[in-house]
Amino acid sequence: MSDQMSDDATASARVGWNEQYALHVNDEVREVRDAWVGESLLFVLRERLGLMGTKGACEQGECGSCSVMVDGELVCSCLVMAASAVGQRILTIEGIAPIGAPSDVQRAFVDAGAVQCGFCTPGLIMAAHDLLERSVQPSEIEIREELSGNVCRCTGYGRIIEAVQRVSVNRRAGAST
């Protein structure tokens, strides 16, 4: 693959700096104006749409902090070119539950002690929701593999696994009653 380097650093013309598009985020259409073509979805969510809940920590898909759902798939928003996501349904941490009314997964993370500094947490909440949508009763090894794209530096993961297992148990208990 090849690509063109845009104007050299000293040129005053700003090619690719006036992108206009709309993104479908958390069931709302959000306009993006005068964006640079190279902006990632992570950047646009945070800096242009004010959705600061999605975090960036590596900008190369190696930590999972920026995880969002795009058309139902868990992806790293740092690796999605924002302008390429037009027409796709984007779900961020802000779309998981209203402020003050956390989801069962979010409550379990707090209750189980799965949160310390909390920087990786929104991405992990997205990944855990996705896992528990697809797998009602994930085994421990399945939880570990499914969440292995989300690095946490504080917890050593034990309480996070506990939180996911608690939700699994509670959901099944709820479904059986």
Binding site: R46, E47, M52, G53, T54, K55, G56, T92, I93, E94, I96, A97, I99, G100, P102, Q106, R107, F109, V110, D111, G113, V115, G118, F119, T121, P122, I125
Partner: peptide, 23 residues
């Protein structure tokens, strides 16, 4: 007591403001 963090709910909901979130 093993009480939970006072900032826990904000952190799981993505509303806790890290230094990188400030503008």
């Amino acid at each position: 007591d093993s009480i939970t963090r006072p900032d826990g709910t904000a952190k799981v909901q993505g509303s806790f403001a890290f230094s990188s979130d400030l503008s």
